[in-house]
Structures are given as structure tokens and as C-alpha cells.
Simulated assay, not measured.
Amino acid sequence: MSLALGAATVPTFTVLVRKGYGGGYVIMSGGRTFHPTLVLAWPDAETGVMSPDAALDLVFRRELESAEDPAAAREQLARSFSDRLGAVRGAEGFGFDAVVRPSETRQLLVDTLATLPRRKLMQHVTPRVHPVDPL
């Protein structure tokens, strides 16, 4: 899939509707890796290098193991980092063009697609050097 996205000469759109973490997010055309035409996120979307749960387990493992109540300590740490999650923070660091309501997504994609050059014009602007294999 990543090779096809890298070779594509057609407009691509990315809409993050839930969660996108790490390499999986990148391979699914997350952020700006494959230069998508438009990157949108829904308000509840989360993105990051890894999931918050995995990050807490990795970074604060020793502190959590040595705590009297590991579950309570983990919950407190999770609350302290909760303001760093969400679509607005993702827009700052992960290349979203906009954070939109689910009900507005389709119309925004249609409007953006209508502003792009037609296919015949694209062949002169960015000619296809090699085909994209079927997925």
C-alpha cells in the first residue's frame, strides 16, 4: 500500500476519524508523509508516535512498578497528559489541514475535489511516469 500511495499521481485525501498511531498511521497516508492533497481530522481523533497507554507503560514503567497503588498512579499520569491529546493538538504537530465535524466532512472533500485540475490537464502538469499497481 505504501508503494502505491507514493507512486500515485491522483489527488489523495486523509480523514482521521478515530486513532492513528506510529507506523500504521504513516503507512495509511497519515499526516504529510505521502503529500496528500487534504488532511482532515474529526474532533475526537487522536494521533501520536504511540498510543498514550503504551507511552505511559514505556516511559513511566519504573515509577508505576514502585508505586503503592500502580493503577491510581497510572490514572493520575494519564490525567496529567490528557491535555496533550486530541485533534487540535494533532493539527499543531501532525499536519492536519483542518479539524472538522463529521457532518461537514463529505462536503469539504467534494468542494476541495472541485477545485483541483481535471485529469486531462493533470497529464500535462504531472505526467504519469509509471502506473500504480492494483491493490
Rank of each mutant, 00 (worst) to 15 (best):
D69F: 02
V125F: 12
H130G: 07
S51P: 07
T112R: 00
L64P: 03
D53I: 12
P36V: 00
A114P: 00
V39A: 03
L64Y: 04
G6R: 05
M28F: 09
A4H: 15
K120F: 13
R128D: 09
V17T: 06
A72N: 14
Q76E: 15
V132Y: 10
L85Q: 04
Q123D: 07
V110K: 12
A7L: 14
D97W: 00
V100L: 06
L121Y: 10
R74A: 13
S29F: 01
A78F: 14
V110R: 12
A55G: 09
L121T: 11
F96V: 08
T9K: 05
F96E: 10
A91S: 08
R79W: 14
K120Y: 14
P11E: 04
M1K: 12
V99L: 04
K120L: 05
H35Y: 06
H35W: 06
L113M: 13
D97I: 05
Y21W: 13
T12S: 07
L16N: 09
T105Y: 09
Y21C: 02
V129W: 10
V39D: 03
G22F: 02
A8M: 12
D133H: 12
P36F: 06
V88C: 06
H35R: 03
P43L: 05
A45T: 01
M28R: 11
G24D: 06
R79M: 15
V125Y: 13
T37P: 00
D53G: 13
T115K: 02
T47E: 08
Y21D: 05
G6Y: 07
P36I: 00
M28G: 10
V125G: 06
V17Q: 04
V99Y: 08
V110T: 04
A73F: 01
P36L: 07
M50S: 03
L77Y: 10
E104H: 08
S103G: 01
P70I: 13
V132H: 09
L113P: 07
V125A: 08
T105D: 05
P70L: 13
G20W: 02
V17S: 04
S29C: 06
V15F: 07
L135K: 10
R118G: 10
P36G: 03
R74Q: 14
T12D: 00
L5Y: 15
V15K: 01
L116D: 01
P134A: 07
D57S: 14
D69H: 13
V15Y: 03
L3N: 08
D57M: 14
S103P: 00
A4T: 15
A4M: 13
Y25E: 05
L38I: 04
R74S: 14
D133E: 15
G31Q: 05
E104Q: 11
I27E: 10
S80G: 11
R79C: 14
F94L: 00
T112N: 01
S103K: 04
A7G: 12
V129E: 08
A78M: 14
S29M: 00
K19N: 12
R62Q: 10
F34P: 01
K19R: 15
E46M: 03
E65K: 11
A87W: 01
T37Y: 04
L38Y: 02
